[in-house]
Amino acid sequence: MMAMEVACMTPSHAKPPAHHRHHADPAGYVAAVARASQARGLRLTPLRREVLELIAAAGRPVKAYDLLERLREHHDNAAPPTVYRALDFLLEHGFIHKLESINAYVACHHPEQAHQVPFLICDRCASAEEVCDARVAELIEAQAEALGFRPLAQTLEVHGLCKRCR
């Protein structure tokens, strides 16, 4: 199995979250999601698990229709709603992230805890790096509060070229 290309960048001067663990291997990541699901009383159905495994194995952001194609290799009758229901569950519970600007999904490095994180997205190779620095989300929330704004969701995506592509 291929290692996940989605990395977590924590600045060297920043303290990582208390439960900061990365799941570099897809099987370890899926096992962590299964544990988190069980701890929260959630049902990780075989289909949800399979979609999660496909996202983890992709090693890069993956689109819903690419997931559907892969599912059809084992489930001839798989349809778009099947994939989208699984994705909705995984998103709702913080097990994956959606990169809105490229309409793709990536595994979350911290499936044990819900959090908002910005991403650095390479426009050449389509890799995505999760920036694991709570200060970014806290700063956005503080600015919103100062302006009397109540954020319901955060999506911060920075596009450019990764180190390999530069």
Rank of each mutant, 00 (worst) to 15 (best):
E112G: 10
V158Q: 10
L87N: 05
C122F: 05
H23W: 15
R135G: 12
L52K: 03
R135K: 10
A7C: 11
Y65V: 00
E100C: 02
E130H: 05
I140W: 14
R72N: 05
H75F: 12
E92F: 04
A128C: 02
A107L: 04
A36S: 08
M4P: 08
L147M: 13
S37W: 03
L47V: 08
E141P: 00
M9P: 00
L152R: 06
R70A: 15
Y29Q: 12
A18H: 13
H109D: 13
H110V: 08
A18K: 14
D66H: 06
A107G: 04
V6G: 01
N77L: 14
T10A: 11
E53C: 11
A126K: 12
C108T: 07
L152F: 07
V158R: 08
P80I: 00
E73C: 07
V136G: 01
C122V: 03
Q113V: 10
M2A: 12
E73I: 00
E73W: 09
F95T: 03
L161M: 13
H93K: 05
H19N: 14
A107V: 06
D88C: 03
K63R: 15
R166W: 11
Q113R: 11
Y105G: 01
L68N: 03
D88L: 07
A128D: 04
C8G: 13
T155G: 09
G41S: 05
V51A: 09
E130T: 02
A153M: 07
H110L: 14
A134G: 13
D66M: 04
H97C: 00
V136K: 01
P11W: 03
E112L: 15
C122A: 06
I55D: 00
H22K: 12
S127K: 06
L156A: 03
D25R: 15
A58L: 07
R150D: 15
